[in-house]
Amino acid sequence: MKTIKRFEHINAKTIDEAASILKAGNASILAGGTDILGAMRFEILPDYPEILVNLKSIPDMEYIREEGGMLKIGALTRLEDIAKSNVVQAKYTALAEAAHRTASPHIREMGTISGNICQFTRCWYFRLPDNRFDCVRKGGKKCYAMTGENRYHSIFGAVKGCVAVNPSDTAPALVALNAKIKTNKRTIDAEQFWDMVKPGSTILEADEIVTEIQVPTPAKGLKSSFIKFAIRKSIDFPIVNCAAMIGKGEARICLNAVHNKPYRCINAEDVIRGKSINESSADAAGAAAIEKAKTLPGDRNKWKIQLARTMVKRAILGCA
């Protein structure tokens, strides 16, 4: 295997210290490391950080607690801890299930919630070693997937010319649960957190660090669920996933891996809101969710539209 380029490893003691290092440039965050180290080893990007700022050396970044009517999760909380948390399983079911369905046990033991929502896209053109394709997401002029092999790509069109999808499992759960992402600079609605920002996936500034995830405690009668379709259940990234929170006249449904960022299914929400959940109403909502879906040139991703419809339907049924 190719050797990883040398970098300086700094154990930050505080968020402020980490942010100041990031602000100086040529540095990147190291949390669980499951994404950044692979990206560096395979040299998928044109430029590489010379410094990795380790956040794990900052105290009190790993926690799960209910406080002030919300669930607070420290940014460095490992996915496996979230998946196994009794309180998350009981009240924030979609998030527990999403964390549980992420990757494999080994990766969940290392990967953090903040890393999972900040990871790079898995587009294979973007990810190919040695920066093989200088695609639009890296500052190039072309999206190779648009006219190339795009069976796993966006069914809701391109964003800034890129048809890659967001691969996070926890992201749609956070959107469905109406969560907020707290950083060292601000608190952002989860729904506004992601965008196509070269080469990353979030609106975070260079020296901005996620510190906490805040999920409002669902009102009594609200239920949430998460469902994922992947080729191999044991480890794979989603082909399509979906989270829903429904009840008491409220409905929030979010697909992911279908668009550049988590895709809130407003149409489906309108269809199911206030209705009793059954096969028929869920199916109608699933159909509504894909009303704006379209295939890419070559129609290779057509199957994902069928999957998206089914995932929405099943996520809704999971809230019954």
């Binding site: 494999s104 898995r122 294979w124 053109y125 190919l128 093989r132 394709f133 190779y144 006219t147 190339g148 092999e149 069976r151 080729i231 191999r232 259940k233 044991s234 480890i235 794979d236 990234f237």
Partner: peptide, 25 residues
């Protein structure tokens, strides 16, 4: 194995995107 039809480059030549069967599946 999946190849880019436009360039002939292999796109999933890694153990994440090449879906080899595992015992857990």
């Amino acid at each position: 194995k999946i190849y880019c039809p436009k360039t002939g480059v292999g796109l999933n030549f890694d153990n994440i995107n090449y879906h080899i069967g595992t015992m857990n599946d």
